[in-house]
Design a binder for these strands. Structure first.
Lengths: 210, 210
DNA sequence: GTCTATAGGCTGATAGAC
DNA sequence: GTCTATCAGCCTATAGAC
C-alpha cells in the first residue's frame, strides 16, 4: 500500500505547490496577474497539469479565499481571550482591519468580488463544515459578553450589534484597499473611533450618559 | 467653419454612442462582459475605431465611472434641500445606498476596484474641476447644520462625522453588492439603523440621554 | 494514470493601407 | 477617419505519448 500512499502524498504536494505559487503571485502582483500559464511556468509543469488538480482558475481563487478566511479567523481568535468585552471588541476590530490590510488581495477575494465568488468561498467544503461564520460568531459572543457585563447594554441584540460592527469594519477595510487616498487617517484610529461611537450609540437609550 | 464644426459634432456623437453602448452592456451583463469587440460590433464599427476616441478600455470604464459619480451627486442633491438635519441625513443616506443598488456596476467601478481605477475616476478632468467631492461636502454640510440646530451636537466635528457615515454607508452598499446573502435585511432598514446609532453615538458625551 | 503538446476561441492593442 | 490584418496573450479542452 506504500506506493498508493506515496502517490497520494505526491499529488497533495503538487496541489499545495500550485496554491503556494498562486498565492505568491497574487500577493506580489494582484489578482489580475494570476494566470494558469504563469503558475505552470513557475512550478515547471505544463498548464494542462493544473486542470488535474483544479477544475479551473476560479477554483484556485476559491481555495485561496478559503485559506485567507482561515487566517482571518485566526486573527480574531487571537483577541477572543481578552476578558474585558470592550477591550476584546477593540482588539478584534483592529485585528480584522489589520488582516484586510496585510492580506489585501485575499480580503478582496473574499468580500469584494461578485456574489458568485464570495458564495463559492463560503460554500466550499471546509467553510460549510462550520469554519465559515466562526468569525462572525466570535463578534456576536463578544457583544453578548458585553450585554452581560454592563447594565447599560443589557437590552442589546448581540447579532444586530455584530452586524453593525462588521459593516463599519468592512467599510474601513475596503475603502482603505480601494480608495485609500480618500481615507487618509490611520486604520487603527478609524477603527477605534468607529468602535467608540458604535458602543456609545448602542447603549440603552434611557441610560444616563457618562 | 461649418465643416469643422460638423466634424467635431460627429466625433462627439460617436464618442457618446460608444459610451452609451458600453453602459448598456455593463448594466445588463456586468463589467467583465464589456469588451471592445462587443461595443464595436453593436455600433457597427471596427474595434480599431474605438481607439480613436479612447486610449484603451480603462479609459472607457473611467468615463463610465465619472458619469456614475454625477448621478450619485444628483441622488444626494435631491435630499439636500430637506430642512431638518436629521431627516436630511436619513434621506441622503438612503439615496446613497439606493444609488449603489440601482447602479451596482457603476458603484463597483467607482469605489470597489483597485486604487488605480478609483483615483483615475476622481482625477479625470470633470471631477478635478470640483464635481468630485461635492457629494462628500453635501454630507459634511448636513452634519454642520445638525451641529448648529441641536445643542447636544454643538461640539461635533462635521468632517469626521461625515467620514464615519460614509464608512457605514459604503459598508452596507458594498456588502449588499458583493455578499448580499450575508446581509439579508433590507438596505433601507440597515441604513436607518446605522444612521440612528451613529447619531445617538455622536452626541456630546456629557449630554443627558433622551 | 499521469502528463505533454496542441488546437480553438476569446481578449486588448497596433501597424499600415486607403 | 476608418478599415483590414495581425500580434501576443489568455482560458479551456482534448488527443495521444509514456
Amino acid at each position: 500500500m506504500g506506493i498508493a500512499e506515496r502517490r497520494q502524498r505526491q499529488r497533495k504536494d503538487l496541489r499545495d505547490k500550485i496554491l503556494k505559487t498562486a498565492q505568491r503571485i497574487v500577493l506580489k502582483e494582484g489578482l489580475a496577474a494570476l494566470t494558469l500559464r504563469r503558475v505552470a511556468e513557475k512550478i515547471e509543469y505544463s498548464p494542462a497539469t493544473l486542470y488535474l488538480h483544479f477544475q479551473n482558475r476560479d477554483e484556485i481563487l476559491q481555495e485561496l479565499g478559503r485559506m485567507g478566511l482561515e487566517v482571518l479567523v485566526g486573527c480574531l481568535e487571537e483577541s477572543a481571550g481578552v476578558d474585558d468585552p470592550v477591550a476584546r471588541l477593540g482588539a478584534m476590530s483592529r485585528g480584522y482591519v489589520r488582516f484586510a490590510h496585510e492580506h489585501a488581495e485575499a480580503y478582496r477575494l473574499i468580500f469584494m468580488l461578485d456574489s458568485a465568488t464570495a458564495e463559492a468561498v463560503f460554500h466550499s467544503h471546509a467553510v460549510k463544515a462550520g469554519e465559515g461564520d466562526r468569525a462572525f460568531r466570535l463578534i456576536v459572543e463578544a457583544f453578548a459578553a458585553l450585554a452581560r457585563a454592563r447594565p447599560e447594554y443589557a437590552s442589546l441584540d448581540p447579532a444586530a450589534a455584530a452586524e453593525q460592527l462588521w459593516i463599519a469594519l468592512h467599510g474601513i477595510a475596503s475603502l482603505k484597499i480601494s480608495c485609500g487616498k480618500f481615507l487618509p487617517a490611520p486604520a487603527d484610529a478609524l477603527v477605534d473611533r468607529a468602535v467608540a461611537t458604535l458602543l456609545f450609540g448602542l447603549r440603552s437609550r434611557d441610560t444616563p450618559a457618562g
